[in-house]
Design a protein around this nucleic acid. Structure first.
Lengths: 228, 228
DNA sequence: GGACCCTTGTGTACGATGTCCACATTCGGG
DNA sequence: CCCGAATGTGGACATCGTACACAAGGGTCC
């Protein structure tokens, strides 16, 4: 009906109408990189509002596209949310790596391994507090499990799980952790740290002062080192 | 328009129409106990499908009532979900108490306190596995926090938190736990157990065989006892 | 015992959302 | 250059939460 040019003009009227939800500004009929744009929008939605806030129509609105366009790239809302999850998970991993990278150089190898191990937990907890919405989205699991457990989200270096495993291996190699305690240790550590994260985000420890939260993290990691 | 009797008859037509969503059977205009009926329906919905499955209209349908009737008893869907949460939390507490009650009589007081402490965690984990939907609903927190942290859900004896605290106090009294380790210990224990529960319900440990899950629970509780 | 009013349930309606279907536009290869 | 596959649009539908006005019933005070 409308030529491309006319269509673009119609989509950007100069009359100051009261309704201008988002910028439907796009010069080409094809978007070019809609899939990533939708994920990006989804991540932004998840950042402020958690997984339930990643609404298909809102994401397409942000991308300046009609709702159905999303279905060319995602089977359904769940698939989009899953992609957002993976992106969030990657950010968790990156935060953990950053925490390790910021560590002061250590003299003792055993002490260094220990510090790297603690940084894994600290980074995890820091991300949970700084980006609670993304954190919840990262570990969100759909009710029908249609997108569950089929793939992992890799950061620059690896998944959070792999980072934790590597840190534990380091502990064993430097003798900071007896070998017979190694099997299954990631689940012990993960349980404790993740549990605290949930407590801090929306459990009874919600709204704790950041300093106190950091202390709580220290205590939990102390417990892990002692009890692992 | 219709007398009460006529209305009741109209609500239960003998023509076998294809659409009969649920039984709108009710003999009185007033329901009598709608609030509790809605909570009950909500709990049932949450049991199979978690918090997001507790849908206002579905609950009213179960209760044989028009959707808006719910608003005479709950401010909004969030309020209903909150009530369901409290009910679910109470069930958690009852499961924990049942686990403690099923404990074999112990000879040593210190050993008894330890067993009671472990039962707290075991009951918690058992509930999470047997009723994952309700468990998720119990710890669900609304995005806008409008119903957050204002009241506690009491079971027959107390909230899960109180039960945990009591168990820890017992440990101190019997000398199984040094007094200086007591402050904040509930958060350490809660973190670890809750984290494992989440792992088991919808984390990477999802779908673990119940036996293995029980073992994992044992290991986490071991870690807590060692590291607390 | 009857008039009043507060509580509780009904009817109707609106906007938002996820998703289905048919159609339009564009791009990349033969 | 033309045609099919990929991508975006338009329109429609069921479902959901919720607001507003109205009806029915129960309790209370005269």
């Amino acid at each position: 009906m409308l030529s491309t040019l006319e269509w673009v003009m119609a989509a950007a009227p100069d009359t100051d109408e009261p309704k201008r939800p988002t910028r439907p500004t796009r010069s080409t009929y094809r978007h070019g990189d809609l899939r990533n744009a939708l994920i990006k929008a989804g991540v932004e939605l998840a950042r402020e509002g958690g997984p339930e806030a990643v609404v298909l129509r809102a994401a397409t609105r942000h991308a300046g596209v009609v709702p159905n366009a999303a279905y060319r790239h995602f089977a359904d809302r769940g698939a989009l949310l899953h992609a957002v999850s993976q992106a969030a998970m990657a950010r968790v991993a990156r935060t953990m790596e950053a925490e390790q990278a910021a560590l002061p150089p250590a003299t003792d190898a055993k002490e260094a391994a220990r510090a790297r191990f603690r940084a894994v937990g600290t980074g995890y907890l820091r991300f949970a507090q700084e980006e609670p919405g993304l954190f919840r989205a990262a570990f969100h699991v759909p009710g029908d499990m249609s997108h569950a457990a089929d793939d992992d989200a890799a950061g620059s270096g690896g998944t959070p799980f792999e980072l934790l495993g590597a840190a534990l291996d380091d502990l064993v190699e430097t003798g900071a952790l007896p070998e017979d305690r190694r099997p299954g240790a990631e689940f012990l550590a993960w349980s404790a740290v993740h549990g605290l994260a949930v407590l801090l985000i929306d459990g009874p420890l919600r709204g704790l002062h950041p300093t106190q939260a950091h202390d709580a993290g220290r205590h939990v990691i102390d417990m892990i080192e002692r009890g692992i």
